[in-house]
Simulated assay, not measured.
Amino acid sequence: MPKQLRKADDVSLNSPSLITRIQEQSISFFIDLANATQYLKTVFNNFFTKKFEFQEFLKQCYQIGNKSVGLISITGIIIGLVLTIQSRPPLVQFGAVAMLPGMVAISIIREMGPVITALISAGKIGSSMGAELGSMRVSEQIDAMEVSNTHPINFLVIPRVLAATVMIPLLTLYADAIGIFGSWLGINIKDDMSFQLFLTQAFINVDFLDIIPAVIKSFFFGAVIGLVGCYKGYNAGRGTESVGIAANSAVVTASLLLIIVDLIAVQITDLL
């Protein structure tokens, strides 16, 4: 029994204190912040000074769009259906069913379409970038490119970031259209409304300024997804488990930053 007590005392003495853990986490945070800052500086400097790989950019655009269309289609229809079905009963009580198409269209165009599309893309595209570049780091392909002076940032990172920045707004517009179509399907579950009448009631309340801020912030969403996914994969560790860690960290970090960017965009839009 005394020996067991000594072992327990040794464990309690050797375990780090709360202050030590906070110090270690703070140091790790500032190191990551410095690495991220240096990474962003290198990406922007190479974008304006080095040769741009246009073929790789087109390849990444095709992969991002082709891999996401099916999931975005299903999600967009479900969003339109859910918003319509849940919003209809309160509007029926107030005799304002005619406002349903416009309300759902504004909700999808302003917020639901861009945010849901970005979050889905963060999970599918961001994790793919993190895993792909992480596996290249583990297999030392990136190291070989650096030694041979082929500028891996320009060949691996910049085309992916630009492709995500360009394709996310296009996927957002596609998700908006599919979501509005899903709303029409939701209305016709209980009512009978032609598609032409539905579009008239939907877009009579949609202003041009409702579309522009949503499209602009979707460009920032795409840049965040591309930068975070490539950063986590490019700076992955050497072990094989680092690939999974990079993919998972890319999704979590990108999703959190997307919510923050959306909050900032909403505040700016509200001031206009």
Rank of each mutant, 00 (worst) to 15 (best):
C61A: 09
T117M: 06
A34R: 14
S128N: 09
L258N: 08
A144I: 07
S249D: 12
M103D: 05
M1L: 13
N66A: 15
V104T: 08
I106C: 00
Y39V: 07
G65K: 06
I27D: 10
Q4L: 11
S148G: 01
I72T: 09
G126Y: 01
F195Y: 11
A250D: 04
V252R: 01
G113L: 09
N35I: 12
V69R: 04
L18N: 09
S87C: 00
I72E: 05
L258E: 06
F181T: 06
V82N: 09
I79E: 05
N45I: 14
V261I: 11
L258P: 07
V215A: 13
A8Q: 15
Q141R: 07
A177R: 11
S17N: 03
N66I: 08
T165V: 02
L100Q: 02
L83N: 06
M1A: 15
G70C: 01
I158Y: 06
L272C: 09
K59L: 12
I158G: 08
Q86C: 05
I187L: 14
S194V: 08
V215T: 11
L91M: 10
L91W: 00
L162G: 00
N66G: 14
N45L: 14
T84W: 04
G123I: 06
I211F: 13
S28L: 13
L263P: 02
K7Y: 12
I259C: 10
L171F: 11
V243A: 00
A175D: 08
A131N: 05
F195R: 02
Y234T: 06
L5F: 13
T37G: 15
S127V: 01
V115P: 02
D191R: 07
E53C: 12
Q63F: 13
L199G: 02
G182N: 04
S121G: 13
Q93L: 13
G186D: 04
I204K: 14
I180K: 07
F52S: 07
Q141E: 14
S12D: 12
T117L: 05
S121C: 15
C61M: 14
P101F: 03
L91Y: 02
P152T: 08
K7Q: 14
P2T: 11
K67Y: 08
I72K: 02
S26D: 10
N188H: 07
L5Y: 10
Q23I: 11
F47N: 03
L272R: 08
L156E: 06
A8G: 09
L271A: 13
V228C: 07
R160K: 09
S127Y: 05
V243S: 00
I187Q: 11
D191F: 08
V261K: 01
S218W: 01
D143T: 09
I27L: 12
L83G: 02
F47M: 12
Q38P: 00
E56R: 15
V115W: 02
A214G: 10
F203I: 01
V104G: 01
T117K: 06
Y234L: 06
E53W: 14
M136T: 01
Q86P: 00
G102T: 07
R110L: 05
P169D: 03
Q93V: 13
I22Q: 14
R88T: 15
I125N: 04
L5D: 13
I79D: 09
N35P: 01
E56Q: 13
F30K: 09
